[in-house]
């Protein structure tokens, strides 16, 4: 497996959609290629750091304000119908 082949399998690797044969090849490649091993580790960390840290969480106050506004609009629409 070349570095380019490794990259082309990376999405399926992270999504758990890789065949056992290709998974073995990816493992063999990263065992012998330090650059691709770093890419694999740090890409995994990239995904995890975004999953673990919600950067746009809705505050309780804003959520209530938005919720009320949405329902006022929908109820108006329901009355018209």
């Amino acid at each position: 497996m070349t570095c380019t082949d490794f990259l082309s399998q990376l999405t399926d690797y992270f999504d758990g959609q890789i065949s056992p044969e290709l998974l073995e090849e990816v493992r063999a490649h990263t065992a012998g290629c330090s650059h691709c091993e770093v890419v694999l580790n740090t890409t995994r960390q990239t995904i995890e750091v975004y999953r673990d840290n919600e950067i746009y969480e809705l505050s309780g106050e804003l959520r209530e304000r938005l919720h009320t506004a949405i329902m006022v609009k929908c109820n108006k629409k329901a009355k018209k119908a």
Partner: peptide
């Protein structure tokens, strides 16, 4: 994913 990785690095 690769671009984000590169930037976060």
């Amino acid at each position: 994913r690769l671009q984000l990785r590169e930037r976060l690095s």
